[in-house]
């Protein structure tokens, strides 16, 4: 049974972490914009620009189109934000174990990751605009498309932990506690590297960034699923986007780069927590620049057909290839 204290602490910690998550998420968006601008030979906005934008959006009223379904239309951004924050609570931040770690595992996280996208689909369909409808259809299609490579990554990781005899192979805490690179031989290393690359390409898709931003496709759909959103609702979607960016980075760190600085520096207690958290965010920023900013700045937008082909054929194959290498590695390790 849980004591009142534990529940209270959990709630407080969750609240604090949500706020930190939102702030860091928005900073991430700012960094992304700034770096992208530098890559395009522009000066770019200041890092606090997302906060300025958000402040403005939140001060504006919501405009609900005449032929929209208001309840669904208004619920979508809240659901999107809430689910992204919940995923954050399942993530280990540095050496701090996930707050909700005891109540769910990687499978749940995968499901929760799909919720913001689903909320956007629902909101898009509820907008009653042809652009939003087309955008929502595309969002569904691309969601279905990138789930396959994502699933193969999760399975590979779980298989690895399972075959190494670690309990709770799907729990994020055990994944973090046992860096996957240490569990494999050379063949598995290659497999994991392939999976890492696959994950790097799934992230921009999960975040609806160029080249996978077909659902929003500014030039043809004028914002697609988000076309009718304005004011506070759009502000909520912006926050959700920031948190989701953090979550995807955090997930990549948790699975592929779980190492912490504190053991190296010989720190303990709160100092260790703080140092590791900072190190964690630094890793997230670096990963995000590499897998989101560089890709979105250096590529043109794909057609929705390309997105499907890319994820089902190329990255699907890559994911399965990585998975089979990992399995092969552990089987070989079992033999010798």
């Amino acid at each position: 049974m849980l004591s009142m204290d534990v529940i209270l602490v959990t709630i407080l910690a969750a609240g604090a972490l949500s706020i930190i998550g939102i702030v860091v998420g928005l900073i991430l968006l700012g960094i992304d914009r700034r770096i992208s601008a530098r890559m395009q030979a522009r000066i770019g906005p200041p890092l606090r620009q997302p906060f300025i934008d958000l402040k403005k959006l939140l001060s504006k009223e919501n405009i609900i189109p005449e032929n929209a379904i208001p309840s669904l239309f208004n619920a979508a951004p809240i659901v999107a934000l809430a689910s992204s924050i919940v995923v954050l609570l399942y993530l280990p931040i540095g050496s701090m174990m996930p707050i909700l770690g005891g109540y769910g595992d990687l499978i749940l996280v995968m499901y929760l990751l799909a919720v913001p996208a689903l909320a956007m689909v629902a909101g898009g369909f509820a907008s009653g605009s042809p652009y939003a409808t087309v955008g929502a259809q595309r969002e569904m299609v691309s969601m279905i498309a990138y789930e396959l490579p994502l699933a193969s990554i999760v399975i590979a990781v779980a298989w690895l932990l399972y075959s190494s005899g670690i309990a709770d192979p799907f729990a994020l805490s055990s994944i973090v506690a046992n860096p996957i690179w240490s569990l494999v031989g050379p063949i598995g290393m290659v497999g994991l590297f392939v999976l890492l690359l696959t994950f790097a390409w799934v992230s921009p898709a999960e975040l609806s960034k160029i080249p996978f931003d077909t659902p929003e496709a500014e030039t043809e759909l004028a914002g697609g699923v988000l076309v009718e959103y304005s004011g506070k609702n759009l502000g909520l979607f912006t926050i959700a986007q920031g948190v989701k960016t953090l979550v995807m980075g955090g997930l990549a760190v948790a699975i592929f780069f779980p190492w912490n600085l504190s053991p190296l520096l010989g720190l303990a207690g709160y100092a260790a927590l703080a140092v590791d958290a900072v190190f964690f965010f630094a890793k997230v920023i670096l990963l995000m620049i590499l897998s989101v900013t560089v890709i979105r700045t250096g590529l043109a937008r794909f057609r929705i057909t390309h997105v499907v082909t890319l994820f089902w054929v190329w990255f699907g194959v890559a994911g399965l290839f990585g998975l089979s290498l990992v399995i092969l590695d552990s089987v070989l390790a079992g033999w010798f």
Binding site: Q40, I210, P211, D213, T219, T297, A300
Partner: peptide, 15 residues
């Protein structure tokens, strides 16, 4: 380039 969603190339061409 912009219509293709390739804003970097758009900035480059205009620069």
């Amino acid at each position: 380039a912009h219509e293709l969603g390739f804003d970097t190339l758009f900035y480059l061409a205009w620069r």
